[in-house]
């Protein structure tokens, strides 16, 4: 079964076409990156997947279910481009709240929050308030929140944003581990270096249209991802 199945998705904002007959399918266990310039339509596609924006036409399925059905998101974890929460919450409080929304039984939430924050190296920040945190600490919190609960698909919008080099390296390792354990990872990112190290499959989107999709190594040949990306959409 395809985890994501998009068929001829179109989305317009007024007269501007954000997605034009965009089709994409991602199989279970893939580590996939959707690439494109700013305004290419990547975030619109991610938001369409999560039912946050209404696409104009086409068919979009998540874990075999129509994206309009809230149960399609039961095993999905999402990290938005800019993770934020109410300033007076503690980081552990944010993760607990998200864990409960995800459906984790209340008696297991604290334990899972502890493990997730430990995994992201922020266990010493559990009682720190959102308003006191740096962007990087918030990003790690958002990533920790995605690890809570039973997740089959991780949708990560700019996951490397705000992370320092150590954080980027640690996230690369984490994503590789998740991919190795059979989880499906969908990354929307400009961090081409990291994508090249972690993902096996890519698609490039330009002005709402699919430019290329496939197994990264076979697409790149001798080139690196940056050169390949520039060749496809740089002009």
């Amino acid at each position: 079964m395809n985890i994501i199945e998009a068929t001829n998705i179109s989305k317009n904002y007024g007269r501007v076409a954000a997605l034009k007959n965009f089709s994409l399918s991602i199989e279970k266990g893939e580590c996939f990156a959707l690439l494109g310039k700013n305004g290419a339509g990547k975030t619109t596609f991610v938001k369409s997947l999560l039912g946050l924006v209404n696409f104009s036409s086409g068919d979009l399925k998540l874990l075999g279910k129509n994206v309009g059905d809230k149960t399609s998101r039961e095993k999905v974890s999402y990290l938005p481009e800019k993770f934020s929460f109410y300033p007076y919450y503690t980081l552990a409080g944010v993760c607990e709240f998200y864990g409960k929304l995800k459906g984790v039984p209340h008696h297991l939430v604290k334990e899972q929050v502890g493990q997730a924050m430990e995994r992201l190296g922020i266990s010493d920040l559990m009682d720190k308030k959102v308003k006191e945190c740096s962007k990087g600490q918030l990003q790690r919190t958002g990533l920790a929140a995605t690890l809570i609960g039973d997740t089959e698909l991780f949708i990560l919008d700019e996951p490397y944003s705000g992370l320092d080099p150590i954080g980027i390296k640690e996230l690369q390792v984490l994503l590789s581990e998740l991919a190795a354990s059979g989880k499906t990872i969908f990354i929307n990112s400009h961090g081409l270096d990291s994508v090249e190290k972690v993902c096996k499959n890519i698609a490039i989107l330009d002005k709402g249209e699919l430019v290329v999709q496939g197994e990264m190594r076979s697409l790149l040949g001798e080139k690196n991802l940056l050169d390949f990306f520039y060749e496809k959409v740089g002009k």
Binding site: L50, S84, F85
Partner: peptide, 14 residues
């Protein structure tokens, strides 16, 4: 305005 709505509605929450 704070971007929290998108985060909440990305959960299995109608």
């Amino acid at each position: 305005e704070e971007g929290v709505m998108a985060q909440l509605l990305a959960f299995p929450l109608s």
